[in-house]
């Protein structure tokens, strides 16, 4: 008489050889991983910052790599759109700046001209208004 456990295990006993190979393979691949190796070997060789980056990469980024890639793509699209939209105001702003500087220059020019004219006018004595002589008719 046997228990169901004994029956089930006996029934699949032949798989043990494959499972042994599988176990060895898993242990050699997973436990030779750099992070795991670090834990065993005293964590001396790699600097803390690099180790932290490796841990972040392995634990946070790599398991959800598709999500991260999607977010990165979305961010790039948003950045592109933002850049595309900000091009127009920039051009307008530069045009505004150009016209303002031209206006300022013209204003300065006028002010300079005015400054030149005003002393010249103030230094001359006031002349009495002269009557323009009427043009004489020439008699032919």
């Amino acid at each position: 008489m046997k228990t169901p456990r004994e029956i089930l295990l006996k029934r699949h006993q032949s798989a043990n050889a494959k499972l042994d190979r599988l176990r060895t393979e898993v242990l050699s691949t997973t436990l030779s991983h750099p992070i795991r190796a670090l834990r065993r070997d005293g964590q001396e060789d790699i600097p803390l910052a690099v180790r932290a980056l490796l841990v972040v990469w392995r634990e946070l980024i790599w398991p959800c790599r598709r999500a991260w890639a999607g977010m990165a793509a979305l961010w790039l699209v948003m950045w592109g759109i933002n850049r595309g939209l900000s091009d127009t105001p920039k051009a307008t702003r530069s045009a505004h700046t150009a016209s303002a500087s031209a206006l300022f220059q013209a204003l300065e020019e006028q002010r300079r001209l005015l400054a030149e004219l005003i002393p010249a006018v103030s230094s001359q004595p006031a002349e009495p208004p002269r009557r323009n002589p009427k043009p004489q008719r020439s008699t032919l």
């Binding site: 699949h12 176990r23 065993r40």
Partner: peptide
Amino acid sequence: AGDATAWDTLFRRYQLP
């Protein structure tokens, strides 16, 4: 703690069930 021998023991115990 990352002991490979311990993992081997655990996997050997559970692989067939």
